[in-house]
């Protein structure tokens, strides 16, 4: 089975040349800057190990970065990528390939669960190391040193934006997957007798979920030929006017399909907030608990449940 396409790859394919140009405009990188970066190339390239060490040495100081520094297989790759990063940074080519490299590094950080805040600190430490080299090239003219350093810093900020974007995209992807998983889990419709369904709702009801709930309920009514549905909202902590409205609509839509819906498990807090909000649930049959709902449903369907023998 192939790995699911991550958000990163997805975003990378969307990175058009015009986007890259725009991002370079954002950091205001001009021809002057490129010329200055070419001048200080040696300060970066001749001391590569020193600069890389500044970055990873900083990370090593923090327990929170153990996800990266504590894993030999990742740290090796990260160091290699960082070296390539520094070489590319002063090479003057900030095109598609450059961006792809930044994305890969961001993806790696994300895999190592590296926090953005720690990453920023380490990146700053890296820039300090480079800055010190650049400033020492212009001992008499600190303004020139500053300008050269600033030119390189523009590229650095360009990089940071991409790496942080990559880390965010990866995290958003994870959150989306989890949300999807929760959503799929959260609305089961269960048949417990012929023509009788129960629908236990647990967790937060938002508009999106309420819509999905209505949909799955109505399709279940059709599929199971249900005549009564017991909707239990014991697990719903809050019901606002929007959600209440959705519940009413669901009940009415089910009625159009010939099914009656009984709502159970309205907690004291929910009941009071509904009354305070002035929402009239009069058109809906509500009962205290799931047991009451089932008994009422059985009565409607004509079931008589009796105990076979006294339990000792």
């Amino acid at each position: 089975m192939s790995k699911p396409r991550s958000a990163l790859q997805f975003r990378m394919t969307e990175f058009a040349p015009s986007d890259i140009e725009r991002r370079l405009e954002f950091v205001n990188l001009g021809p002057d800057d490129r010329a200055r970066i070419a001048e200080i190339k040696a300060d970066v390239l001749d001391h590569l190990d020193e600069h890389v060490e500044a970055f990873f040495g900083h990370l090593a100081k923090f327990e929170e970065a153990r996800g990266l520094t504590g894993r030999p297989e990742l740290i090796g790759e990260a160091k290699q990528l960082k070296r390539e990063h520094l070489i590319a940074m002063v090479a003057g080519e900030y095109g598609r390939e450059y961006i792809d490299q930044r994305f890969r590094l961001g993806q790696l950080y994300s895999r190592a669960a590296l926090e953005v805040s720690i990453f920023m600190g380490a990146f700053h430490s890296l820039m300090t190391s480079i800055g010190r080299r650049i400033m020492s090239r212009y001992p008499k003219d600190s303004l020139a040193g500053f300008e050269h350093f600033t030119s390189l810093k523009k590229v650095a900020f360009f990089d940071i934006a991409i790496i942080v974007d990559a880390m965010m995209a990866d995290r958003e992807q994870t959150i989306r997957q989890q949300q999807d998983a929760i959503r799929e889990l959260s609305t089961p419709t269960l048949q417990i007798r012929d023509r009788l369904l129960i629908l236990p709702i647990i967790g937060l009801l938002d508009t999106q979920r309420a819509k999905q709930l209505t949909d799955s309920l109505l399709h279940a009514v059709r599929a199971h030929r249900a005549r009564v549905v017991v909707m239990d909202i014991t697990g719903v902590a809050t019901v606002d006017s929007k959600v209440a409205n959705h519940l009413i609509q669901t009940v009415e839509a089910a009625a159009l399909m010939g099914a009656s819906v009984i709502v159970t498990g309205v907690s004291a807090e929910v009941a009071q907030s509904l009354v305070t909000l002035g929402i009239d649930l009069g058109r809906i049959t509500t009962l205290g608990d799931l047991q009451g709902g089932l008994e009422e449903a059985e009565r409607i369907l004509g079931y008589v449940v009796t105990q076979a023998a006294e339990v000792a």
Binding site: D215, L218, Q249, A253, A254, L256, M257
Partner: peptide
């Protein structure tokens, strides 16, 4: 139909 019911409501 389910979708019709939702739309009506």
């Amino acid at each position: 139909q389910p979708d019709v019911a939702i739309a009506i409501v």
